[in-house]
Simulated scan of single mutants.
Amino acid sequence: MAPAPGVPEAALLHAPPGWTRLAFVSDLHLSAQTPRTMQAFLRWLRGPALQADALFILGDLFEAWIGDDLLDDTARTVEPAQAAVAHTVACALQAFAADGRALYVQHGNRDFLLGAGFARVACARLLPDPAVVVFQGQRLLLTHGDLLCTADTAYLQFRAQVRRADWQQRALAQPLAERARQAQALRAASQAAQHGAGSWADADPAEARRWLTQFASNWMIHGHTHRPRDHWSDGQLRQVLSDWDCDTPPTDQQRAQALWLHACCGGLTVHRTDCR
Score class of each variant (00 low, 15 high):
H29L: 10
L268Q: 13
F96D: 05
T77H: 07
P80A: 08
L114T: 02
R139Q: 11
L103C: 08
A203E: 06
P130R: 07
W167Q: 10
A95E: 14
D243F: 05
F158D: 09
F96Y: 15
R276S: 13
H271F: 15
T251E: 14
A23G: 13
A258W: 00
L42K: 08
A206P: 04
G115W: 13
C264R: 15
T273F: 00
Q138R: 15
H14L: 10
R36A: 14
F56Y: 12
L71Q: 06
F24G: 04
P48L: 03
R125K: 14
Q161F: 00
P205D: 07
V89Y: 00
N109A: 05
D53T: 07
S26K: 05
D230E: 10
V162Y: 02
R125Q: 15
F56C: 09
W232A: 03
G137E: 09
R238F: 14
P80Q: 05
A84H: 09
L113A: 03
Y155D: 11
I221R: 03
G47D: 12
L50S: 13
L55W: 00
V7R: 05
G235T: 07
R125G: 05
T77V: 13
A102F: 00
T153D: 09
A10P: 04
A206I: 13
L126E: 07
T273P: 01
R181D: 01
G67Q: 06
L61Y: 01
A258Y: 06
